[in-house]
Design a protein around this nucleic acid. Structure first.
Lengths: 245, 245
DNA sequence: TCTAGTTGTCTAGATCAATAGACAAATTGA
DNA sequence: TCAATTTGTCTATTGATCTAGACAACTAGA
């Protein structure tokens, strides 16, 4: 039994402690089979706080995408299971979530034309400081941010990639408009770290959350690098599977 | 470089985040050779907060026993190194800190005569529910709590152990007054867990801190168990060394 | 349709957290 | 002794957090 009373006056707000406790409690018997949480009043009694304090905790988890509240019905766990992203040669950024979510979408947050830094130049096989197009994107599944990625393309070869992406909301289709009929993932490296400020903002994470970072290079039919990208996933919401393929 | 900006509006007070940051920074170049921290004004500038906020963080660490502030001089790290507790056959509760601290002391917080629970009865080789004396103690090093222990003795054999301990402030001397000339540590098991409410209160820890738990049985000259004890150490302040001895 | 159960919203007050500024008190080195 | 540096204390203000109570809005089942 985990002795998990709340601590007052220690610089951590009660609603955050309760939120963490609820997040931990999910998948540990707090919600019933249907994913329904106990009513707010009961949670308030259980934690020994006011109902409004529990509501603040739930609101934070709703904002994080962990819970979903329905007036008159109750509060439900949004997804009992994590999304599974396949990683393989045929990995397409937006694909691979078939059947796991009702709605998925990629937003273009920002784009720029700029000189490549050393890492990007090396990955794409460019001259130092050659110009690249950088796209900042965010992937949403059923309205919840699950991924945040940055992709670099050689500016000389893909001058209009940002426009194409903005129109099609798809890397595959944007590349097709640029004349790339097919491409494959040459390499992917995966690491995990704590969320930084950008992650907590864009993925709506709480500080201290863990992100998975996947760095990959896509190559065209003749194995020339066309895209270098770095994608951050919320480790709470996503798991990666590496397929041979 | 650890990207460790402060997070506002996430239910964790800035002073706590700063306190954690300082605690982490100690032994990582934040303090100079003499153990002196940068002045409050500089820390405030570095963290981008008001000086009072830094002061709240420092006050918490002073209360925890990590820092020591001196008006006009500066704020100093209390102990750069952790205390090392030897664990071995000849381990004496209060001993083993020779040379590491100026002043050490064991307080008797509470004592009771009560039936043994299953664990204690098994450890001491007693009949179920046979009466035992339980002592609740706290060890201080230079005024800072470093250990919190509970010890059980068979009531029939050591009826006055609490009195003796209160007089002598030493288990060894209290046992001597009870007629035990010598004893040795038959077994010790060590585990680590998060601090619970009792730990945070008695050892002045912050929630989420880690405690080392050492459970041991002391036996007399003819190998009969005379004492079962469970001691919690602040993992921040103490390390244990197991000696063959 | 009615009722019980549940989430959503509003008001109000108490306490905590953070900022701002000023000055006192102690220490150190010139 | 004097000036600079540093911690300690005080007042005041603003916003976040927590409590308390009341009632509206919605859902589901009798």
């Amino acid at each position: 039994m985990s002795k998990s009373a709340l601590h007052r006056g220690v610089g951590v707000a009660l609603w955050r402690q309760i939120g963490d406790e609820i997040r931990r409690g999910i998948g540990n018997g707090l919600a019933d089979e249907s994913g329904r949480l106990p009513p707010e009043a009961e949670l308030a009694a259980r934690f020994g706080v006011n109902r409004h304090t529990v509501r603040a905790a739930i609101a934070a988890l709703v904002h994080e995408g962990v819970l979903r509240s329905e007036q008159g019905r109750g509060t439900y766990v949004r997804r009992q299971k994590r999304l599974t992203y396949p990683i393989g040669a045929r990995t397409r950024f937006s694909a691979g979530l078939e059947g796991q979510v009702r709605d998925r979408q990629i937003e273009l947050l920002d784009h720029a034309r700029e000189p490549a830094n050393a890492t990007v130049a090396a990955a794409l096989g460019l001259e130092p400081a050659e110009e690249v197009i950088r796209l900042e994107m965010r992937g949403l599944a059923d309205g919840v941010p699950v991924s945040r990625s940055t992709a670099w393309f050689r500016a000389a070869h893909f001058p209009d990639i940002a426009d194409y992406f903005a129109r099609t909301h798809s890397i595959t289709r944007a590349l097709a408009l640029s004349g790339i009929r097919d491409y494959r993932r040459a390499s992917t490296t995966i690491e995990a770290r704590h969320a930084d400020d950008t992650d907590t903002r864009d993925l709506r994470l709480s500080p201290g959350a863990i992100v998975l970072v996947a760095r990959g290079i896509n190559v065209d039919g003749s194995d020339k690098p066309i895209q270098y990208s770095q994608t951050r996933f919320s480790a709470d919401r996503v798991e990666l599977t590496v397929s041979a393929d």
